[in-house]
Amino acid sequence: MNRIKLRSVAPVAAAITLGLSLTACGAGNEDSGSGSSDGDGVSGTLAGAGASSQESAVQAWRAGFQEANPDATVNYDPIGSGGGREQFISGGTAFAGSDAYLDDEELTAAQERCSGGEIVEVPNYVSPIAVVYNLPGVDTLNLTPEAIGGIFQGEITEWDDPAIAEENPDAELSGAITPVHRSDASGTTENFTDYLDAASGGSWSEGVVEEWPIDGGEAAEQTSGVVSAVTNGEGTIGYADASQAGDLGTASVQVGEEFVEYSPEAAAAVLDNSEQAEGRGETDIAIEVDRAVDEGAVYPIVLVSYMMACQTYEDEEEAELVKSFLSYVVSEEGQQTAAENAGSAPLSTEFQEQATTAIETITAGS
């Protein structure tokens, strides 16, 4: 399934600029995670599914939320972004996590699933996508966008190719390159190919896709599968949420005249001038990311992951569970928990407030 990207965008107001902020809490967030909106603990079982990139963060969110709400259970199946959206749209789960926002067709289907009501879709997780590699003896690796595109296009097949060797004069490069990609529908793939499409100068020619379009290389399911395939191979290279890179080597990416290592701070910096997609409802906060930045200290290969839910549920308990859990996720406490356990970049205070306002509209139908 090739996703249709919205190309018509409008600047995001400065008040919702994404950045790093751990010190201030949005209005009304002080009690987020302590229970429902009236401060009482919620109960019941909540089912979600989606992005495997968020798995480490979701585990931490579940633990924190369930500690504050001992009668509540949150289940999350990390089946991938595409699978999560499909499960949510079909009514199989109450919420979904996704590394890509709903496209136009999915949005219409999701609104029908939600009894014709609006969708609550909020960014909740901002993280670098690391270019991970396993090349014995090579501890540091600089890669240009053109080289990364050529590798995953299948045009650069040897580690000592001049496009790589010239930027790494002190490294002993040799052997065949085995690129590893996701085999499942993946928002991580979409974000990665969005970067390649914008920044590779044409060395990547397959556009922005959610499902890998090229034969060759090695395919692996979910983030954990890519990390495992790169780890167990030699001369392998892949892309994965940085929180799960483990002990693998991670490439520094050329931005302007510099090579930039991934970090939460550098990932957040690329979003400072991001744009919000037009034509969405007030509670549907879909963000376009500028990948072709040329300023230093910015890491452009990032994913902005979303939580998506209905604005109206038939069951009151389900509505309160969804609202309470998502409120915790975007709260200062929840964002700090994700930063500590998954290395993500916390939402700014202003963005926390906007996301919380959207989530607070979740209710049960009459």
Score class of each variant (00 low, 15 high):
350 E>V: 02
277 A>S: 15
299 Y>C: 11
72 A>C: 13
205 S>G: 13
293 V>S: 08
122 V>E: 02
81 S>L: 05
36 S>W: 03
286 A>V: 02
102 L>A: 08
121 E>W: 02
208 V>Y: 01
219 A>S: 15
151 I>T: 06
11 P>M: 03
41 G>T: 14
301 I>P: 04
114 C>F: 02
171 A>N: 11
217 G>K: 07
336 Q>W: 01
297 A>F: 13
358 A>P: 11
224 S>A: 09
218 E>D: 13
37 S>Q: 10
5 K>F: 05
244 Q>D: 15
42 V>E: 11
255 V>H: 09
165 A>I: 00
190 E>G: 03
172 E>W: 07
229 A>I: 01
124 N>M: 14
55 E>W: 05
143 L>E: 02
47 A>M: 12
192 F>C: 09
96 A>L: 06
324 S>K: 00
252 S>W: 06
347 L>S: 01
111 Q>T: 13
89 I>N: 06
57 A>L: 08
164 I>E: 05
221 E>W: 00
206 E>D: 11
229 A>T: 10
112 E>H: 14
82 G>E: 00
254 Q>W: 05
143 L>V: 04
358 A>K: 01
316 E>C: 09
243 S>V: 01
311 Q>G: 07
16 I>R: 10
129 I>C: 05
195 Y>M: 11
265 E>D: 08
251 A>E: 07
305 S>L: 01
354 Q>T: 14
39 G>A: 09
322 V>Y: 04
